[in-house]
Write a protein that binds this DNA or RNA. Structure first.
Length: 422
RNA sequence: GCGGGCGUCGCCAAGUGGUUAAGGCAGCGGCUUGUGGUGCCGCCAUCCGGGGGUUCGAAUCCCCUCGCUCGCCCCA
């Protein structure tokens, strides 16, 4: 029979890896709490139209990467490829924005049908924030600072912030015309892929990784030169805020994010230690999205961090505190032998847990020696032994597994008292 | 969707046409039938991702297929 295994690109997170994930989760929860953000959870499955309309029909994510299927009611459903569209939908659906601006965060799995490679799976996890209803340039800087500080607090090294402004839709349209004109003149110098994009998505030619194309593009007109006075002023203001926060960045006029909804500020945080998929955090302003999804015009900014990529970075960071992360071990390993003793041990395990101790109960029925061996290996500092003799006398043996193996003969009341003191 | 690399036990790994398919870790059992950590002994792949083929003979060569992996596209 063929072995059952997980679907391509769907990975299991095994118990051994969970301490690191939990550290990351605890860190961002704490960060977000300090930044006065509130958590929101939305469904993994949404109507396909939400993403088609929000992310943009022409994008790769919508065009070829979505997990889309018909449900039994013949509605077209899609496993969410990103978080922003869902969060905005939920905010609109429940009238959150009529209560004022919203400062939100979310985390959970996302799905994209792509070829897996280092730092990229078909089911992957993101954590992100969305500041809905904030237009002030300080909100751009605040959002970026939260991401930057989160990554710093986790001790991720080799980070770089790249920054660009995409302007407003009018700026973009104007630039698009300029750029297409220029690209058409230089068509024969571009690679085939890029040539095709002149009509479909010219802006994305800008961050082509083809070195020849990049060389040609060096002389292409820049988006930043097409920005209106107002857009340029806004960008200056954001940069000023970042300077005030002493967050270093590199201007990257070629940074064009893949989702259609971005306006003005666009940014990525990358790491040199990641391999081909170097972006650990990506985000930007999306002032048009909320209206696009049926709300009234509302400014907003957000970002998402890829947790698998973060795990990759932290795992190789080899900081002592990360390398030393292990699953918690029980305080007490409970060994028993004989029917009466086994029953007492079962009862005692519950009482100890109710009293706040963590307890592993040996259920094997194996010889004392075997059970003790497991007690030793599980890392518990204490073993409690109940044999037939102890069961009859209503006592237990408390054994110190760390030291010389000293044993005390105690009543279960004495045991509870003894354990509550360490 | 397209390229490159790889596929021997749960994990690491030797083996490159004729071996009973090394070894290590983990696991299980014993020495020690009620006392662990060290040590010693034993067990643990009739089979080398799967299917065909070449050959007297294949884990080792060929073809197909599946999977993993790295990269392209794109993105977190």
């Amino acid at each position: 029979m063929e072995k059952l295994q997980s679907l391509r690109g769907m990975v299991d997170l095994l118990p051994e890896q969970m301490p690191l994930w939990q550290l990351i989760e605890a860190t961002f929860r704490s960060q977000f709490e300090r930044a006065a953000l509130r958590e929101i959870r939305t469904p993994l499955l949404e109507v396909t139209e939400l993403f088609a309309r929000g992310i943009g029909e022409a994008t790769d994510v919508v065009g070829k990467e979505m997990y889309t299927f018909q449900d039994r009611g013949e509605r077209s459903c899609t496993l969410r490829p990103e978080g922003t569209a869902s969060v905005v939908r939920a905010a609109l659906q429940h009238g959150l924005l009529s209560q004022g601006p919203q400062r939100l965060w979310y985390t959970g799995p996302m799905f994209r049908y792509e070829r897996p490679q280092a730092g990229r799976q078909r089911q992957f996890h993101q954590v992100g924030i969305e500041l809905l209803g904030f237009a002030d340039p300080r909100s751009d800087a605040e959002a970026i600072a939260i991401a930057w500080d989160l990554l710093s607090e986790l001790g991720v090294g080799g980070l770089a912030l790249e920054l660009n402004s995409l302007g407003d839709p009018a700026d973009r349209a104007a630039y698009r015309t300029t750029l297409v004109g220029w690209l058409e003149e230089h068509q024969e110098q571009l690679d085939a892929d890029s040539r095709e994009r002149i009509t479909t998505n010219p802006l994305r030619i800008l961050d082509s990784k083809n070195p020849d194309t990049q060389a040609v593009l060096a002389k292409a007109p820049l988006l930043i030169d097409s920005l209106s006075e107002a857009s340029r002023g806004r960008f200056e203001a954001v940069r000023g805020c970042l300077d005030a926060l002493e967050i270093p960045y590199r201007l990257n006029p070629r940074l064009v994010r893949g989702l259609d909804y971005y306006t003005h500020t666009a940014f990525e945080i990358t790491s040199s230690q990641l391999g081909a998929q170097a972006t650990v955090c990506g985000g930007g302003r999306y002032d048009g999205l909320i209206e696009q999804l049926g709300g009234s015009p509302t400014a907003a900014i957000g970002w998402a961090i890829g947790l698998e990529r973060l795990v990759l970075l932290l795992a190789q960071a080899q900081a002592a505190d990360i390398a030393a992360l292990t699953s918690p071990t029980p305080d007490v390993y409970l060994v028993s032998r004989g029917e009466q003793a086994e029953r007492q041990a079962l009862l005692l395990s519950r009482q100890l847990r109710q009293a706040g101790r963590s307890v592993e109960l040996d259920l094997s029925g194996a010889a004392f020696g075997k059970q003790l061996k497991r007690a030793d290996r599980c890392g518990a500092p204490w073993a409690v032994l109940i044999g037939e003799g102890e069961a009859e006398q209503g006592v237990v043996l408390l054994k110190d597994l760390r030291g010389d193996g000293e044993e005390q003969r105690l009543s279960s009341e004495q045991l509870k008292r003894a354990l509550s003191s360490f």
